[in-house]
């Protein structure tokens, strides 16, 4: 390359080709370095790019593993109460409140106990031993808790029986107070006609 007096550069053909090839290779190389996220948009290629500000996306989470979707594990977790104060079961809390650190820990404990070969009931019993009955979403059906389960039904059955007896007494009293009598003077209509009229009135007005 020669520099002329008017500060313009003269490039011959060979130099031009070398520069062109070098620029092309440089662009390709820098492009591959500068756009690491691009392959992520293609299925199954390359690592994921980092977020601009990961803190905005909340607490970092571990990838989902097979045990997270295990129906048996989920069934157990739906019977366990998360103790973070959310009032949800462990499964719902850990898949809803992603800021909670209690339900993921309880989830790991369930997986660990399951991996030890414990059955669902054994895992629940272990949780009760560790945390007390408050860990269960519903109290076990024994002792005083039976009152919790059966009191509403018992009260309703007793109330229904009492209501039936009261209604029967009322209807008997009504029948006694209203003996069959002939139509009063001035009342045009047989009992059958009055019954029909009553039916029609019921249909027209409520």
């Amino acid at each position: 390359m020669t520099r002329r007096y008017d500060v313009t550069s003269h490039v011959d053909r060979r130099e031009f080709l070398v520069l062109g090839a070098g620029t092309f290779l440089g662009v390709v190389a820098s492009w591959r370095r500068a756009t690491p996220q691009t392959p992520d948009s293609l299925p199954g290629t390359g690592p994921s790019g980092r977020l601009w500000d990961p803190a905005r996306a909340g607490r970092p989470l571990p990838p989902v593993v097979a045990a997270d979707n295990d129906a048996a594990i989920q069934a157990i977790e739906k019977r366990l109460h998360c103790t973070c104060g959310c009032n949800l079961d462990v499964y719902t809390c850990r898949t809803t409140d992603f800021n909670c650190t209690v339900s993921p820990a309880l989830h790991q404990r369930v997986i660990a106990l399951a991996e030890q070969g414990m059955s669902g009931q054994q895992i629940l019993d272990q949780f009760v031993r560790d945390h007390g009955l408050v860990i269960l979403m519903a109290p076990p059906k024994r002792g005083f808790n039976l009152a919790g389960y059966f009191m509403p039904s018992l009260v309703i059955v007793l109330a229904a029986a009492a209501l039936t007896l009261v209604l029967r007494r009322w209807t008997r009293a009504s029948a006694r107070a209203q003996p069959a009598r002939p139509p009063e003077p001035g009342v045009a209509g047989t009992p059958e006609e009055l019954e029909r009229l009553r039916g029609e009135l019921d249909r027209l007005s409520v």
Partner: peptide, 30 residues
């Protein structure tokens, strides 16, 4: 009856704590 059972379930944790001295949870399964 439904109102009673809802009220009963809502208050049962308090009742249980008073009677048994243990806290329990009464959630959707109940």
């Amino acid at each position: 009856g439904i109102a009673f059972s809802v009220l009963w379930g809502t208050l049962f944790p308090i009742l249980s704590e008073l009677v048994q001295g243990t806290k329990i949870t009464v959630g959707p399964p109940f």
